[in-house]
């Protein structure tokens, strides 16, 4: 009976010692949503369509991402670059580029398939919505910002 009591008190003391010790250690959990979360570099979030150093779109509308996509969520319409409307560095560009985030499973196959490194995974993940219609992202929403001081097109 007495030894039981002593044993219990010892166990509590041991446990509390750990708690007290950890109390003064730096925290490892994150304070999301009050602070932005930290990501590993390879985190697969909402896609970003990259631009090259001249501000032109890297995407040449080859459709390989759409072909690689297992959930069939990428829709592209291609058209030809012309002299006065040059959008990408290649012969053609994506006139329409939609990703349907209702279907996307963030597997990254599109990124692997891309021959021009145009499509990448960004770190945005807060895309929950009450309306599925808003989950079809258009090219304008996916494109990276034009670099500062890019030459005029």
């Amino acid at each position: 009976m007495i030894s039981d009591t002593l044993n219990t008190a010892g166990a509590i003391a041991k446990g509390m010692a750990t708690t007290l010790k950890e109390l003064f250690q730096p925290t490892i959990t994150e304070d999301y949503p009050f602070e932005p979360p930290n990501f590993e570099g390879r985190f697969r979030g909402v896609h970003v369509l990259q631009r090259d150093a001249n501000g032109l779109e890297k995407c040449v509308a080859c459709f390989l991402c759409a072909a690689a996509c297992p959930s069939n969520c990428i829709y592209i319409e291609a058209t030809e670059n012309t002299g006065d409307n040059r959008v990408s560095a290649g012969d053609r560009y994506a006139k329409v580029y939609n990703i349907d985030y209702n279907r996307c499973i963030f597997c990254g196959y599109c990124v692997e398939a891309c021959p021009t490194d145009a499509i990448t995974h960004g770190h945005d993940f807060e895309i929950a919505s009450y309306e599925t219609g808003t989950l079809v992202y258009r090219k304008e929403q996916l494109l990276a910002k034009e670099p500062q001081g890019a030459p005029a097109k």
């Binding site: 509308a61 459709f63 319409e77 030809e80 012969d91 053609r92």
Partner: peptide, 9 residues
Amino acid sequence: YRYQTRPWE
């Protein structure tokens, strides 16, 4: 047809 789509599409 050029530069509009791809054969498997």
